[in-house]
Design a protein around this nucleic acid. Structure first.
Lengths: 231, 231
DNA sequence: CAGTAATTTCATAAATCAGTGAAATGTGAT
DNA sequence: ATCACATTTCACTGATTTATGAAATTACTG
């Protein structure tokens, strides 16, 4: 059975893959990512995933086992890349400012930019993935636990850096600010089109450069204010 | 058929209701609200709703027709109350400040407070409802359209008031700020418990007074900064 | 080419789903 | 009491779901 973790590893990957044709395993993940991100876990059937990927449903079970395992594979696939990019961005900023003061806004940029940059590559897969993360983030039943499992380490790096930049800040406030930040960021990256309709197309959900610039300002000013008010 | 709109109106309500027993129609909506808010539309079966409400599945179809119509009834039920409270809060602030300057933060409060207050009543139904709205807000497939249908009018009132308070602001920036605000607000009201776990219980998702005070500061400062930077 | 293991397809099991029609029950008016 | 109508329950259908086991196919190795 290929969906056991042992054989899904990289050692056999070279042997498993054909020289030319499309990688069906990745095609399945792409199709699942696309559909799950739009309709949620329960809104998608493995048959639909199979149809979009152009494979038989049995093949999905062969590679990934149960439907929930397929979902977990989708969620995990890009998490490492994203976390790596974020950790590197935060570390790079810290390395470049060892002696002097740390700028909270720059730290926030290091946290936000990797996501926006990945989405701006135009890779539809990343857009789907961020929609999926936003959906999970707002799923009370198991979203919090899932988010924590994959993203807590990098969030801790963010909070650590913000604490170093704002040593007078109360610990609690940093966490609350993170929650506000991620709520705004996730919704923006979902590109639901609501803002377009609401503003009469004055704003475009897909214009992530507009989001980026304003989100910097929004979060940095919000953080400063929350920290400085004694609540 | 009771699920036709004609007979669902209020005229027959008095005759339909028994003098004593529980209102099964409301029980069904409560159960559906609870389950939909936790697992999403597709994550809930009509049978589950029936079980939680303690009624037969056929009764749900009798009252509400198809499953999607049930969902729409749940979503619409509290929307009017919420919109009324928000419109009144905005209007009240405007009425109290006809001559002088308008304070953007006070306008934001008028938009945020009704939601937090309703959630703080302790009525589990309202908490479920806000979870549901947050879920819909982050549902790309049909969430944007649904949100617009129910909440656009009150959002326009918010934007109008902010424009009056900040006449020098660019129109686009007001909409972007609204999006950031609602992303943070919806996530906070979802009370997913993630912030609790992340902060080592330094923050409590359920402590909406902590959210309220910080969200005021966060949004007001963010708005000022976004508007003042020329982007 | 023969042999072996991985991959892919086929057929189907077993459970569950949304939704329906008719019967049964309750309720209020006359 | 009886009639009309609203409500509730029961029994069920047809479609669809996840998932499996076996067969067929493909790719690689010696």
């Amino acid at each position: 059975m290929a969906h056991s973790e042992k054989q899904s590893g990289g050692a056999l990957r070279g042997r498993r893959r054909k020289g030319q044709g499309p990688d069906l395993r990745e095609s399945i993940l792409d199709a699942a990512e696309d559909l799950f991100s739009r309709h949620g876990f329960h809104g998608v059937t493995v048959r639909q995933v199979a149809a979009e990927a152009g494979v038989d449903t049995a093949l999905i079970h062969y590679y990934f086992g149960a439907k929930r395992e397929l979902f977990d594979h989708v969620f995990a696939r890009r998490a490492e890349i994203l976390n790596g990019a974020r950790l590197q961005a935060i570390a790079a900023y810290r390395a470049a400012h060892t002696g002097g003061d740390l700028d909270p806004e720059a730290i926030i940029r290091a946290f936000i930019d990797p996501m926006i940059n990945l989405s701006l590559t135009g890779d539809e897969g990343w857009k789907n993935y961020f929609r999926l993360v936003a959906l999970v983030n707002n799923t009370p039943a198991w979203g919090g636990e899932t988010m924590s499992r994959f993203f807590d380490p990098v969030v801790r790096q963010l909070v650590d850096a913000l604490r170093d930049a704002l040593p007078q800040a109360e610990e609690r406030d940093l966490y609350w600010c993170y929650q506000f930040l991620t709520g705004a960021l996730m919704l923006a990256l979902s590109e639901t089109g609501r803002i377009d309709h609401l503003s009469g197309d004055l704003c475009r959900s897909t214009d992530l450069e507009a989001v980026r610039a304003r989100l910097y300002a929004w979060c940095a000013a919000g953080l400063r204010e929350v920290v400085s008010r004694r609540l």
